[in-house]
Design a binder for these strands. Structure first.
Lengths: 162, 162
DNA sequence: ATTTGATTGTTATGCGCAATAGCATTATAG
DNA sequence: CTATAATGCTATTGCGCATAACAATCAAAT
């Protein structure tokens, strides 16, 4: 190898890989959001769930799972937690289904979530040239469709997660 | 709620969030790469490591960790695995450090990795309008810098990971 | 030259997220 | 009515990442 063998900066052939950059950028944003949400004792997934329930009162936890790409099984402890925390109310609706709604506490918490998310998004949105913003979101959505439509040969449905 | 209460498609206020879309897109790409790499018995992290060692022969595993955003402690089982698999060679170099190099097997495997990554990247790169490609990578890199530079108040160094 | 500090590889351990398989309950379609 | 499907749930596994601590070795300071 060349000159700076002993420094810690390596030449990085991964820098040009879309998948790699996407992953690291995503991790950075998740870390930022996570640390902000800690202040109101929520994790990113939980914030997503509150947001979704508010926009779709009466939905079931299976609905949420499908939209967020979370397995039914993994939704259980999540919803139990939010319910015990008094943020979500579950009302039997016939069948095994339960209609989900935010409690008053849940709505108040959601307001804080909104403020936090706004600050968080603003921090990073400013890195995008204005003309790029909408286009970027659009491309990201198309990547999702690409993968969720044809997960390659097998059937291993998405992993995504809220 | 409105008309299609009972369908599984919810109205999704998260669609416009950069962080959310980034995360889901990243998960899609990781899933795709993961399933492809399974064919040659490697995981994405391992493929990254092989790539990095090849580009920086003689580097240490701490170097790799720093570049990939992986904790020293978590590098250990990774490198043990790759070494036992006969893909990487570790030679003491003074101090506790070990100089890492790909074995012949490692180089052959890396060739397969390259082909796989190329196909994988091509699948998704085609979703980007050509003018967007370089700009997009650049923005993603800037997001990384943003987060790795100022992880917010505390010191919780990045989580990223290869 | 000896102490101080930093770095490297390592062990152990815990937490969070996601996947799988299986089960009981209830609604719906034939 | 019966077969099918969907919902919520349990249990278990594996992976990724974090922390704390430790021994070995080098580098710098006094």
């Amino acid at each position: 190898m060349d000159i700076d063998s002993r420094t810690s900066k390596l030449t990085d052939p991964l820098e040009t890989l879309l998948g790699y950059q996407l992953r690291r950028a995503s991790n950075v944003m998740m870390a930022d959001l996570g640390s902000r949400l800690q202040a109101i004792d929520l994790r990113p997934v939980e914030a997503s769930i509150l947001t979704l329930i508010d926009a779709n009162p009466g939905c079931t936890q299976s609905d949420l799972g499908r939209n967020l790409g979370i397995q039914r099984a993994n939704m259980v402890p999540l919803m139990v937690g939010l319910t015990k925390a008094g943020l979500v109310d579950r009302a039997p609706v016939g069948g095994r289904s339960q209609a989900l709604r935010l409690t008053r506490n849940g709505m108040e918490r959601l307001e804080m979530v909104r403020a936090i998310i706004e600050a968080h998004e603003a921090r990073f949105r400013r890195l995008f040239a204005p003309e790029l913003r909408e286009a970027a979101l659009e491309v990201l959505r198309s990547i999702r469709q690409e993968g969720e439509a044809a997960p390659r040969q097998d059937d291993p449905e998405p992993s995504t997660g809220g």
